[in-house]
Amino acid sequence: MSKRETLLEIKHLQKNYDDLQVLKDISLDVHKGEVVVIIGPSGCGKSTLLRCINGLEKIQGGEIILNGETISNRTKDMHLVRQKIGMVFQSYDLFPHMTILNNILLGPMKSQRRDRSEVTKEAEELLKRVGLLDKRDAYPRQLSGGQKQRVAIVRALCMHPEIMLFDEVTAALDPEMVREVLDVMLELAKEGSTMVIVTHEMSFARAVADRIIFMDKGEIVEESDPETFFTNPKTDRAKKFLNIFAFDTIKGV
């Protein structure tokens, strides 16, 4: 396997909320084109980790380096850094007062000052690929949760980020809509996007990940490739966690 360049380096990251240590000593590298999936119980700090990468949270220790440049705890020009990082939230957060198209155009046009016609063309291409071109002039309230989330992904992609962060993006969706969003993410992975995904969808994680990171109580407990992790986890905590997803039949054989 060819050695891929390191895109994102997280070194000894520490984050506290008042007195509580939410992230204890996180070190992680993400390589270009890699799909890293982070899983773990609620409260283990996985969402917080993503938010720290994107500068939405301040960190108390350690460093985050993107493409060789330190981006952690920056006060100036953080918006330029965020243009290189695409983030999709659990609550999709489309802007309700704008049409779908304008939602997508806002970032590229105002922030990157790109030409309207050029961005519109790209937006429409992407909407077509996720099957939502006919919704370009609709308002978010007219779309279902799954549709909104797909638009949110397109919105983030249009900024041409170097790395995409996904924070439990299917957790708030009705089961029928989860698949359509995961399919989009699988497509992106196949095309070689660099992605860091936090999710509860275990079979999806197994299918899409190049690497699984298991976190618990603010630490990385286990790190391995998906096959190993799901069939033969090394640590006890991982084993315990995976058992949550298996049900013994109560009706005995």
């Binding site: 994107n54 939405l56 953080m78 918006h79 330029l80 965020r82 243009q83 290189k84 990082i85 695409g86 983030m87 939230f89 609550s91 957060d93 489309l94 802007f95 309700p96 007062h97 806002l106 970032g107 105002k110 922030s111 990157q112 919105r155 983030a156 900024m159």
Partner: peptide, 27 residues
């Protein structure tokens, strides 16, 4: 206006001023 709207705007790489102008104030 939900703070998550502000975060969504910031995550797109908009400056604070742009977020206030295009996302916060209209809503």
């Amino acid at each position: 206006v939900n703070s998550s709207q502000i975060e969504a705007g910031l995550s797109l790489g908009l400056t604070r001023y742009q977020v206030v102008r295009y996302v916060l104030l209209p809503q």
